[in-house]
Every structure is written in C-alpha cells, then in structure tokens.
C-alpha cells in the first residue's frame, strides 16, 4: 500500500514538474497574431509600435477593444459576458495566448 502511494506521488510530481517546465520554458517573439474563428485575422508587429494605440476588433460574434503598445498587447474592453480576456491583462511573450471564447478570438505573440 505504502509503496503504491509513493509510486503515484513521485510519478505525478514528475509529470507536473515536466508540464509546468515545458510551459514556462516556451519562449516567443514580439509579433501579435490575431485569430478569429480559427482564421488569421491580422498580425501586428509589436516591436514597431512606438506610440500605444487603441484598436477595435469587431466581428459577427462581438467586439473586443485592444490596447497595442511596444512589445505588449491586451484586451481592455469586450462586450462578452465574462471578460476573462480583459482580466488577463497584457501579454508580452508567446507563453499564453489571450483567448476570448465567446467571440472566438485568439491573440498570440509569435516569432
């Protein structure tokens, strides 16, 4: 019994460390790709942004207001019910894309 507990604990600890490690070590560039419903909608070169500006992405599923700045992009407003994408804040690397599920919008920083 004891041996099995230790076995599973060690196995899961290793898997968790591996997963977290793979996730954190994944780097990225500074171009933001905006996908709507799986199709590439637009790309923005974040390195070239000197003056931050606001941009509205309006699709048939809804509207998201983006704040584009040097090396970073974030959603500042959306007319969706949960506002998960707004709460996520700015992204600066390819680790985590911003996902607005109700509007089928994905913003990811790519090389």
């Amino acid at each position: 019994m004891k041996r099995k507990t230790v076995f599973w604990a060690v196995l899961f600890a290793l898997l968790a460390a591996l997963g977290a490690g793979a996730y954190l070590l994944r780097g990225g560039g500074t171009r933001a790709a905006i996908y709507v419903d799986g199709a590439l909608y637009d790309t923005v070169d974040l390195d070239a942004v000197a003056v931050p500006y606001e941009r509205v992405v309006e699709t048939e599923w809804g509207s998201n207001t983006l704040w584009v700045s040097h090396g970073a992009i974030q959603v500042t407003d959306a007319d969706c019910p949960n506002h998960d994408c707004v709460r996520q804040g700015a992204i600066t690397d390819g680790l985590v894309p911003i996902v607005c599920l109700p509007h089928r919008l994905v913003i990811q920083i790519v090389e």
């Binding site: 591996l18 997963g19 977290a20 199709a39 985590v96 996902v99 599920l101 089928r104 994905v106």
Partner: peptide, 16 residues
C-alpha cells in the same frame, strides 16, 4: 470552438 490548434500549448500547464 476557436478552431485553433495553438491552444494545445495550454496542455502542459493544464496537465500540471
């Protein structure tokens, strides 16, 4: 829903 394969990169984090 998003028809985006890029989300697969959430996989390791969600596993952990």
């Amino acid at each position: 829903v998003t028809r985006s394969a890029a989300l697969v990169w959430y996989g390791p984090a969600l596993l952990a």
